[in-house]
């Protein structure tokens, strides 16, 4: 099994193999079913969400927060929020999150140029000034402790980001400090062809 784990960054979304047992739908409590948004017409729930259902209070508040940070109107563009998410996921080596959000970035931009460059060359990738400012900030904010400083904030301002856009970048990057610590810690990314 181990040899089927994906270790290289890719836009091909792997299968997520949990390291702990997901909650079984037939054993789920009312609170779990409600947080899972299971209805008679919607009984398809991913293993990832079924694992998170073990801590139902967190799951119930996390999903709306996640959606608000990544999709609410105004502020930073959708693609640029994905780039913040990707910066965090690369630092934390969350292959699964990086694949999902690199694929979304490529889809939104209708181009694989930026994510190809990031996967090939990491921090040394050749990026536009705007993407460079985003990626450097996201990468440094994702360290423990954060390595982002006033010069990174100045670089964002010089690249033309306004205050609302910068807050959205902070939020989308920080959010993947959270998501990566669930996805990368609680499961393995495995090749789809190995799916049972």
């Amino acid at each position: 099994m181990t040899e089927n784990v994906v270790h290289k960054f890719t836009r091909t979304v792997p299968r997520w193999l949990p390291r702990v047992a997901p909650v079984k739908l037939e054993d789920a409590t009312e609170a779990q079913l409600s947080a899972l948004q299971v209805t008679p017409s919607n009984t398809k729930v991913s293993d990832y969400v079924l694992v998170l259902a073990h801590d139902v209070e967190s799951l119930a508040v996390r999903s709306p927060l996640f959606n608000a940070i990544m999709y609410d109107e105004g502020g930073l563009s959708r693609a640029e929020r994905e780039l913040g998410a990707l910066g965090a996921s690369i630092v934390n080596r969350c292959i699964y999150c990086a694949a999902v959000h690199a694929a979304r970035h490529a889809q939104l931009e209708n181009s694989t140029e930026v994510t190809d460059a990031l996967f090939a060359n990491g921090a040394e990738a050749d990026l536009s000034p705007r993407d460079r400012a985003i990626f450097d900030f996201a990468r440094k904010l994702s360290a423990c402790p954060s390595e982002a400083d006033a010069s990174d904030m100045a670089a964002l301002q010089e690249a033309g980001f306004d205050e609302a856009e910068i807050l959205d970048l902070i939020l989308s990057t920080a959010l993947f400090g959270w998501a990566n610590r669930l996805m990368h810690v609680l499961g393995d990314p495995v090749r789809r062809s190995d799916a049972a």
Partner: peptide, 8 residues
């Protein structure tokens, strides 16, 4: 994971 988010 939440703390990683809030601290960042």
């Amino acid at each position: 994971a939440f703390l990683a988010y809030q601290l960042r």
